[in-house]
């Protein structure tokens, strides 16, 4: 920041240098081929300029091997680009398993972000340096996009789905957050800051006021307020299934088949309970569409996760596997 006329964004995440290296490689290829072509044109234009109006040059029939060369050489180069680009993509979209979890909701025209510990922020996000952070995102209305140029990350934020972004900041500082997908009137004002802090500072920030109880605790409160607890008892005798140990485990469905109980599945169970019926139960659960906000849903998910997990899934308070909330949700 502070620089008046930057040519490059800051390299403030672990992914940033990878992206930049690819960028430099591509710039190299571009410079190479464009100067080559410009020079060839320049030279031919001068050397073979028309000297008289009636000049008819002898037709030059070049070797056919030329065609093969200039098909195969670019082909080789682009295959390299493909491999490299794909490699960077997977690095930039696969969060490490020990990432801390943030939930985010985009709505016209603001970002609402929640920490596990319960802190809620609007258009700002505080994170520790040197720690992987995973942001699980959804939208209340139209499509938005979570973009932090200094981290070289971007993910579209879709209504009705969870997508994820992750980063590990390498330098403390303040970095811009943009909404990159056009979302209506104030799209250009849907911006904010990511504050990257030293770990101890971050701890201090966390323990400073503002927390309204952890997400799981808020979720538990909602669970009771919305009356979920009346059916979902922990003794397994309620009208609904026992949710303890549900998160991350396979669920047998009425009519055959199983699904994995990930964030997307729980969200669906709350908003469209009859979409998938648990084997052995009646489709009596009412929909909570309109009664609970997207943020509330993420809190409920955290609550259910805190009820215990199957071995093999990530420990409580820690993220599920990347595909659990991201791709699976994407694929419905």
């Amino acid at each position: 920041m502070g620089q008046r006329f930057p040519l490059f964004p800051e390299q403030a995440s672990t992914v940033a240098p990878m992206t930049d290296n690819l960028y430099f490689f591509l710039i190299g290829i571009t410079v190479l081929f464009s100067t080559g072509i410009f020079l060839a044109i320049l030279i031919f234009a001068i050397k073979y300029r028309r000297r008289s109006e009636d000049q008819v040059p002898v037709q030059y029939e070049g070797p056919a091997s030329l065609e093969i060369i200039w098909t195969l050489v670019p082909l080789g180069i682009v295959m390299l680009m493909f491999a490299w680009g794909t490699h960077v993509f997977f690095a930039a979209t696969t969060p490490p398993r020990d990432a801390i979890e943030i939930y985010g909701v985009g709505k016209q025209w603001m970002w609402k972000l929640q920490h596990m510990e319960g802190h809620r922020e609007i258009n700002e996000l505080h994170v520790p340096v040197g720690t992987p952070v995973r942001v699980t995102l959804t939208s209340e209305d139209v499509i938005h996009s979570f973009f932090v140029p200094d981290f070289r990350i971007k993910t579209d934020v879709l209504p009705g789905r969870y997508t994820t972004a992750w980063f590990e900041a390498t330098k403390p500082g303040r970095y811009r957050l943009f909404c990159a997908e056009y979302c209506g009137t104030d799209h250009s004002r849907m911006i904010g800051w990511i504050h990257v802090m030293e770990p101890q500072e971050y701890q201090a920030w966390l323990s400073g006021g503002g927390a309204e109880g952890s997400m799981a605790a808020s979720g538990q409160k909602l669970f009771e307020d919305l009356g979920c607890a009346s059916c979902h008892t922990t003794d397994g005798r309620g009208r609904g299934p026992n949710l303890v140990g549900l998160f991350g485990s396979p669920v047998a469905l009425a009519g055959g088949g199983t699904v994995k109980a990930d964030a997307a599945y729980i969200r669906e169970s709350i908003l469209a309970p009859n979409a998938k019926i648990v084997a052995g139960y009646q489709p009596i659960m009412p929909t909570f569409q309109g009664l609970v906000t997207e943020e509330g849903i993420t809190q409920l998910i955290e609550h259910i996760r805190s009820l215990g997990q199957q071995p093999g899934a990530a420990p409580a308070g820690q993220p599920v596997q990347p595909e659990a909330a991201g791709t699976k949700a994407g694929e419905r």
């Binding site: 290829i29 680009m81 070289r152």
Partner: peptide
């Protein structure tokens, strides 16, 4: 130049950053 920068966009890893 336009076409070669299309290749930047077609590289998935780079497109994350420059998309939109």
């Amino acid at each position: 130049i336009g076409g070669l920068t299309g290749l930047f966009l077609a590289s998935m890893g780079l497109d994350i950053h420059v998309h939109d």
